[in-house]
Amino acid sequence: MSHASTAGTEWAPAPSGPVRDLAQLGVCAFLLVLGVIMLVDASTLGDNTTGTDPLGPKAVPIFLGSALILLAIGLTVAVLRGSTPELEGGEDVDLEARIDIKTVLMLVGVFVANIVLIDVLGWVISGAILFYGSALALGSRHYLRALVIAVALSLITFYGFAIGLGVGLPAGILQGIL
């Protein structure tokens, strides 16, 4: 923050670590790529401007694509001038600790497994795996208790929502048993 004289930043904790957060340049790259994709996609659209639709389907994507590229440039300039993100804390968030990417990757892995398995095995099994895997990834060491909760939760939600309220959850291989 190059300009911190106003009241809004008075209570910001002293910046820890490097003043420049260069990982933000990744965001710039993401915005730039997204902007280019938008423009390329817009160029494939037919030119359908008609009397009833003088603006056509292309105008907004072209505007947004250009805006993304401009924002990417703007953020790059801001980052290089020392702009750092102001992170929000929370009940369970310890911002002092290093970012724990291993846990995040494990959670994503468990979630992907759920995506692949839900239609095959059904919600009761894939949901239980999702809960159990996530709880263990998040550091639960009560192996049996977590498993019992996982199975109970997926059974309750299946009977409560799918059968009770008619929410569409798949029965999968347990079709006919549940």
Partner: peptide, 13 residues
């Protein structure tokens, strides 16, 4: 662990 596992569970449901 149960709280956030539960959020993932209900979000995907």
């Amino acid at each position: 662990p149960y709280l956030y596992a539960g959020i993932l569970f209900f979000a995907s449901m």
